[in-house]
Design a protein around this nucleic acid. Structure first.
Length: 360
DNA sequence: AAAACGGGGTG
DNA sequence: CACCCAGTTTT
C-alpha cells in the first residue's frame, strides 16, 4: 500500500501542478503577501470555512486587527465580535492566545520550526506546514482536506484518510510530492486543485494536470475516493430558552464563562440540553427565572421552535417570550440587558441569533 | 432530512 | 489512539 511515485515522477507531478497554478490559480488576498501574520490568519479561518465565506471575514478582521500586536492587545470579546457567525469559536480563542504568545514571549515573530509552531494553540501539523512553507519558504508538507482528497484519488487509496493508517500513508506521500523548489506555491497549488478541479462531488478530470497519473481517474470513478469512515448519527437534544424583555426592548443575556463551551460568547438563560422532545410548561420557565436569577416575569409565551445542527448533535430550542416585571440578575451571573439588534460588542453564536430573531 | 466536509485538542 | 469540539453547505 505504500507504493507511490519515484523521485523523478514526483518532480514531474509537482512541476505540472505548479504550471497549472501559475496559469489558472485563483487570485486570493492571502496569496499576495508573505506576512506570516496574514498567512496564519487565513489558514486558521480556512480550517473551518470555504473561501467564499472567509473572504469577507478576512478583510474585516485585518481592518480591525492589522498587526499581531493589535490582536494581542485586544480583549477576547472584541475578537469574538469580529468572529461571530464563523463558528468553531474555540479557534478564535486559540487565535487570540497565539497572538499574545507570539507578541509577548516570542518578540512578535512566529517560530520557524515545525515543533515550536505546532505548540502554538490552534496550530497542528498541517497548519504549521502551511505557514512554514508559504511564509518562510521551508520544505514542509501540508495535509488538509483538499490534499487528502487529491492524494486519495491519485493513489486510489482504499484506506480511509481519517483512519490512522490512512493518515500515515498520506503524510508520507504528501512529503514525497512536495518539491524543494517553491514549496509554498506548491502547498497553495494543491489546495487550489482540490478546491476547484478535484472537487468532492464532480471532479473535472479533463482539466487536471495529474489526470494521466491518477489511479482513481483511470478506474473511471474518482468520486469513489476518498473512502469514508462510517459516522455515528448525531443525537437530538432539546432545551428551552427564556427571552426576558424589558419595556425598552432590551433582553437579558448571560456570558458563557466555561472555557471549552462557547467560552466568551453570550446566550439567553435556559435549561441544559436534554432528551425530552416536548416544550416545557410556561410555569417551569417562570420558576426557573425566579429561582436562578430572582427575576419575576409575566406568564411566558411559547414562540416557534428553533433547530440548529452542531458538530456533534442536533439541537431544538423552545424559545419563550417573557415580559420582565421585577428583579435584577445577581452580580455573580454577569448578566446584561442588551439591545441585541444594535449592540456591536456582545458576541453571539449563530444559534442564539436565530433564537433572538423569534422576537420579530 | 441526510450526507459531506474539517483539523486540532485532550487524556 | 479514540473521542471531542455549541456548524455550514450541498444534495
Amino acid at each position: 500500500m505504500e507504493r507511490g511515485f519515484d523521485e523523478a515522477k514526483c518532480r514531474q507531478l509537482a512541476g505540472s501542478l505548479l504550471a497549472r497554478y501559475d496559469r489558472e490559480g485563483r487570485d486570493l488576498p492571502w496569496r499576495r503577501t508573505r506576512d506570516p501574520y496574514r498567512i496564519w490568519l487565513a489558514e486558521i479561518m480556512l480550517q473551518q470555512t470555504g473561501v467564499k465565506t472567509v473572504l469577507a471575514y478576512y478583510a474585516r478582521f485585518l481592518e480591525r486587527f492589522p498587526t499581531i500586536q493589535s490582536l494581542a492587545a485586544a480583549e477576547l470579546e472584541a475578537v469574538l465580535s469580529i468572529w461571530q457567525g464563523l463558528g468553531y469559536y474555540r479557534r478564535a480563542r486559540h487565535l487570540h492566545a497565539t497572538a499574545r504568545q507570539v507578541s509577548d514571549e516570542l518578540g512578535g515573530r512566529f517560530p520557524e520550526t515545525c515543533e515550536a509552531m505546532g505548540r502554538l494553540p490552534g496550530i497542528g501539523p498541517s497548519t504549521a506546514g502551511a505557514i512554514l512553507a508559504i511564509a518562510f519558504g521551508q520544505h514542509q508538507a501540508i495535509l488538509d482536506g483538499n490534499v487528502k482528497r487529491v492524494l486519495a484519488r491519485l493513489l486510489a487509496l482504499e484506506t480511509p484518510p481519517d483512519a490512522p493508517a490512512g493518515k500515515r500513508i498520506l503524510w508520507e506521500q504528501a512529503r514525497r510530492l512536495t518539491p524543494r523548489e517553491r514549496p509554498g506555491d506548491y502547498a497553495q497549488a494543491i489546495m487550489d486543485l482540490g478546491a476547484t478541479v478535484c472537487s468532492p462531488r464532480r471532479p473535472a478530470c479533463p482539466s487536471c494536470p495529474w489526470q494521466g497519473d491518477c489511479a482513481a481517474c483511470r478506474l473511471g470513478r474518482p468520486d469513489l475516493y476518498p473512502v469514508r469512515l462510517a459516522r455515528m448519527p448525531k443525537p437530538r437534544k432539546y432545551q428551552f430558552q427564556a427571552l426576558v424583555t424589558r419595556p425598552d426592548g432590551r433582553v437579558l443575556l448571560l456570558p458563557n464563562r466555561d472555557a471549552t463551551l462557547l467560552g466568551g460568547l453570550w446566550h439567553p438563560p435556559g435549561d441544559e440540553p436534554g432528551g425530552s422532545p416536548t416544550p416545557p410548561e410556561a410555569q417551569i420557565v417562570r420558576r426557573h427565572l425566579a429561582e436562578a436569577f430572582g427575576i419575576d416575569v409575566a406568564t411566558p409565551l411559547p414562540l416557534e421552535a428553533v433547530t440548529h445542527t452542531f458538530t456533534h448533535f442536533h439541537l431544538t430550542v423552545f424559545p419563550f417570550l417573557c415580559s420582565w416585571q421585577a428583579g435584577e440578575p445577581p452580580e455573580a451571573s454577569g448578566g446584561r440587558w442588551i439591545d441585541w439588534r444594535l449592540d456591536r460588542h456582545t458576541p453571539l453564536a449563530t444559534l442564539h441569533r436565530k433564537v433572538l430573531a423569534r422576537l420579530g
